[in-house]
Nucleic acid binder design. Structure first.
Lengths: 349, 349
DNA sequence: ATTAGCACTCAGTTGCAGAGAGTGCTAAAA
DNA sequence: TTTTAGCACTCTCTGCAACTGAGTGCTAAT
């Protein structure tokens, strides 16, 4: 039986590769003559033309108009990413490597502050690639309770501080009447800290909501109030996704057309959308590449995504990804995503 | 003696006003004919032409080319803002008013979380105006110490939580060897909390650094270490300015030219610049308007700024501002900045 | 199977003419 | 003296036609 990867002979692959890479580079349809000049494939432009016509028949290339060169289709990118890209492990520019090294040191330095880590990492993603970096926070199942503290702040307010074992630190101001002394608060907190340390956050929430329904009628106000406090405190862990801003992406020629930037910025503003998309990747292994219309979310069609999970040990905790135009530099993007996923994973050891 | 405001007679003011406002609206040079049609000033286009020629002589208007209408110069905007704008107190659209009302309620609701307040407020600034909203945090002299807490986190790490009376809540992870028990930490903290509650943060820092130099030789490690902990904890209050993102501004026709967006985004990315600029405004009373090249920072020349301080009682705490193109809607911008400055000030009562 | 050559296609550029918007100036009217 | 009407002039913008050049597909020769 014939594998998909075998539908192209070696030379055809080389031509496809040439077209994809030169198009990624120059964002211009690439013609047969150009290929023969730039890449020495040992044949004339006429031959290349024939091959290109074949590639167009299979649906890997297309022409914007009759007398233009070819550009890759989604399918073409797909084949390139799946069967050509890994053939030639590219060596990467020193600049990026150096940048990553510095980042590594820096992450080591701030490893105790998860927020900062994610912030820096999204930044790194976008400055290295010029695309849009995204990181989702550890999902609830991967977030284990470490400790809660309640600090009396103003007469009727208390600051709740939640620590998780993964390094998430969140605070929230909640209203608690002055009748609760700091000792009362400590008692409330001690119970939770002793009982539930190491539990998954969502499990605790689950248990608590169950309690509140079963014990509601039976017990007095105090317990209810206490459970309420727990609930409020634990609800802190919002799903605040980290998205690099548009600054870097604006420089891409793809967005020379301002309307595209507008569209994109609108989509990104609605972080919810992106979160929804990336959550589907949380179980993947290795690098995942989504090209153009393969994208399930209409607002993001036309964009490509390179995603990978970051891990604690064996468990996938969250996703880091790069959003860019279809004609993104997949080779480099994969390298960047992979590298940074590794860096983040390492901070959890 | 003649005041500056008197160099224009009433009708000339009306014409200048018409030109400025119609240019702000349509971003197109405005011609004499247009003015006579749109604004009924009781004279013909020829008369308007003469007046416009006069206004050009004084330097309030200019022509992109011979056969185009007039556009306001920086000086023209200046005069408009200083001597024309306040004459006719504009009534503002209901939409904005409603939005502000909602915001007011919302701020009331989250009044205990300063961070959120600033975030929402910058957002409001930019959605209401379509320009770029900026808010500087309360400056150090206006930040008074409320309480510090140290919570043992991991074996060699402690989470320091700093509360100020103004509502700033910050946390930082610092390294402290396991030999310090939670009791030790509490002792360290109790001293500071009792001694310095209500002090200005920068004063405390000052005292501490003095101590560390005078007592360094005399006392043992413990005191040094303690002071170090104080220092690290108190250094939390970073100067993290709040800047709304570009999303809204991108829709402005001024930035139809993508290169301008690029420039702008670059400047904004460097928050330091903006902070530096706004700090100069922290002592102002009322609304301050900076137009185009009056701007001391070269990167921001060509932009206008509408700024106002927000206050706690009588004291100016920080600055809220709007960054927009020269041809911004000053009337509306002033209204928005003023309103939101009031809202924020109120949350400090 | 490959290549050279040729006719064909089509986007982009240049140059030019005409339309339209706006001005400045002058002479007449108020 | 101030305002207005009229006219000539300037300058941008649009559309149109001709031209250029890059690129293709096809065919016949190698």
């Amino acid at each position: 039986m014939a594998m998909i990867k075998d539908i192209l002979d070696d030379r055809s692959k080389k031509v496809l590769c040439a077209v994809v890479e030169s198009y990624i580079r120059n964002l211009e349809p690439v013609g047969s003559r150009f290929v023969t000049r730039r890449y020495s494939l040992g044949c004339s432009s006429a031959t290349i033309r024939n091959i290109m016509a074949d590639l167009e028949d299979v649906g890997f290339l297309s022409q914007p108009h009759t007398s233009a060169g070819r550009i890759p289709t989604d399918k073409g990118y797909r084949f390139y990413v799946d069967y050509i890209l890994d053939i030639k492990e590219a060596e990467y520019d020193e600049e990026s490597q150096e940048y990553l090294k510095k980042l590594d040191n820096h992450l080591e330095y701030i490893r105790s502050d998860l927020n900062k880590i994610f912030l820096e990492a999204t930044n790194a993603l976008s400055t290295l690639s010029n695309y849009i970096g995204v990181i989702t926070p550890p999902r609830p199942e991967c977030t284990t309770f470490n400790k809660l503290e309640l600090i009396r702040y103003r007469s009727d307010q208390v600051v709740a501080i939640l620590l998780t074992n993964e390094g998430i630190i969140k605070n929230k101001v909640i209203s608690i009447p002055p009748s609760y002394s700091q000792d009362d608060l400590n008692n409330i907190v001690d119970y939770l800290n002793k009982e539930y340390s190491g539990y998954q956050l969502d499990k605790i929430m689950h248990i608590l909501t169950e309690r509140i329904t079963t014990e509601k009628a039976q017990y007095n106000n105090l317990i209810n109030k206490t459970i309420k406090i727990y609930e409020e405190s634990l609800s802190i862990v919002a799903e605040d996704i980290f998205v690099s801003n548009l600054y870097d992406a604006i420089n891409l020629p793809d967005f020379a057309d301002i309307s595209k930037i507008k569209e994109l910025s609108k989509t990104i503003k609605d972080k919810h959308l992106i979160l929804k998309l990336l959550n589907e990747f949380s179980d993947i292994e290795g690098i995942q590449v989504i090209i153009g219309d393969e994208n399930p979310i209409t607002e993001l069609k036309g964009l490509s995504i390179v995603a990978s999970a970051y891990k604690e040990g064996q468990r996938n905790m969250g996703v880091i990804a790069l959003l860019g135009p279809k004609r993104m530099n997949y080779s480099k993007s994969i390298y960047v995503v992979e590298s940074i996923a590794k860096l983040i994973s390492r901070t959890f050891d």
